[in-house]
């Protein structure tokens, strides 16, 4: 037992001793930097654009939980994003539900769909898993085109923003901005907690060596399904916030473009990193926003970005920063 007592006090299986809001020191600095950016953001950029970025950060965090920490690549997350958007919009316009319950409805439907799609898809791995998710999402797209409640090509329009807790009126862009800002910070902290929880530890092990995890008695499929469902719920939550912000839910939200965009965001930001989704969302959505006047050229530039990152920076921006500063972000 030589050395054991010493180790008990100093070794922590990679968990840093000093933490802030559940973040290690380096991540806490990054988190505070992000909070500072949020605080000054509206001084320089249009708040509605920033809100869109924050919604995609939540979406991308959920996706990274699946791809980066569980090792499952889905091409079908548009189904959860799109249906979350539709149900939130429908709940607010047709049922007259307040902001909180409309967002909850969008989140719950996405989680329920994630549970069903995940149950079907986790029977396969790798490319087959990805193809099943894509096929299921295409079926949802078809349903969204045909079903009357989605409004078809017109989508659901004039969705009211409502109020938070009955007294914070969201009709002002500034108020909405601060409400969504608090939500995105909480969502990133929640995502960090999932990754650094006993559950997150199992997910990382499943990605590392699923066969060994099974041989140690872990029901790997159940953990994959749980991760898939949480990821889908986060997609629905993000989509609901976006729907409330823009007052519209359309076919674009449920199209395969959304599924590929969230992959691209994580690839550029850094798969398997906490802040990859944050950096990736800012990068990709800024490209789309600032290059919008150039029309279809945006797609060409996105293609070039994708190729460059796959060939030269496979760990993404945050992954490269981690390597350079020898830390975990």
């Amino acid at each position: 037992m030589a050395g054991t007592a010493f180790l008990k006090t100093t070794r922590t299986a990679g968990v840093s001793q000093s933490q802030f809001l559940g973040f290690t020191k380096a991540r806490a600095i990054f988190f505070l930097l992000f909070a500072a950016l949020i605080a000054v953001g509206p001084q320089f950029l249009y708040p509605i654009f920033l809100i869109k970025v924050y919604c995609f950060i939540i979406f991308a965090c959920g996706y990274n939980l699946l791809l980066g920490y569980t090792g499952l690549m889905s091409f079908g997350h548009a189904a959860f994003f799109g249906m979350g958007a539709y149900l939130c919009g429908y709940a607010a316009t047709q049922w007259g539900l307040p902001f909180e319950l409309s967002v909850l409805a969008g989140t719950v439907i996405a989680a329920a769909m994630g549970l069903v799609f995940g149950w079907i898809a986790i029977r396969r791995t790798g490319l087959y898993f990805a193809m099943i998710t894509l096929a299921l999402a295409q079926m949802v797209y078809f349903i969204a085109m045909q079903a009357p409640f989605t409004g078809g090509e017109n989508g659901i329009q004039s969705i009211p923003r409502g109020t938070v807790l009955g007294f914070i009126d969201l009709s002002s862009n500034t108020t909405l901005y601060w409400v969504i800002s608090v939500i995105v910070l909480a969502a990133v902290a929640f995502y960090n907690r999932i990754i650094h929880s006993p559950f997150g530890q199992v997910l990382r092990a499943v990605r590392n060596n699923p066969e060994r995890a099974k041989s140690l008695g872990y029901n790997v499929d159940r953990f994959k399904l749980a991760a898939f469902t949480i990821s889908a719920a986060m997609a629905g939550f993000a989509a609901s916030l976006k729907t409330i912000t823009f007052g519209i839910a359309t076919l674009t939200d449920v199209s395969y473009v959304i599924s590929t965009e969230v992959v691209l965001i994580n690839l550029v930001g850094g798969i398997g990193t906490i802040f990859g989704p944050v950096v990736g969302s800012f990068f990709i959505l800024s490209l789309e926003h600032f290059l919008a006047p150039y029309g279809p050229w945006v797609l060409l530039i996105q293609g070039i970005v994708f190729t460059v990152f796959v060939l030269l920076f496979r760990q993404g921006i945050v992954g490269e920063l981690q390597k350079r500063f020898r830390t975990h972000l």
Binding site: T12, V15, I194, S197, Q201, Y218, A226
Partner: peptide, 15 residues
């Protein structure tokens, strides 16, 4: 093991 709300530090009792 499904406790996603708990900190990883709760596992330190196993060290």
């Amino acid at each position: 093991n499904f406790d996603f709300w708990r900190s990883e530090r709760s596992l330190e009792s196993l060290h």
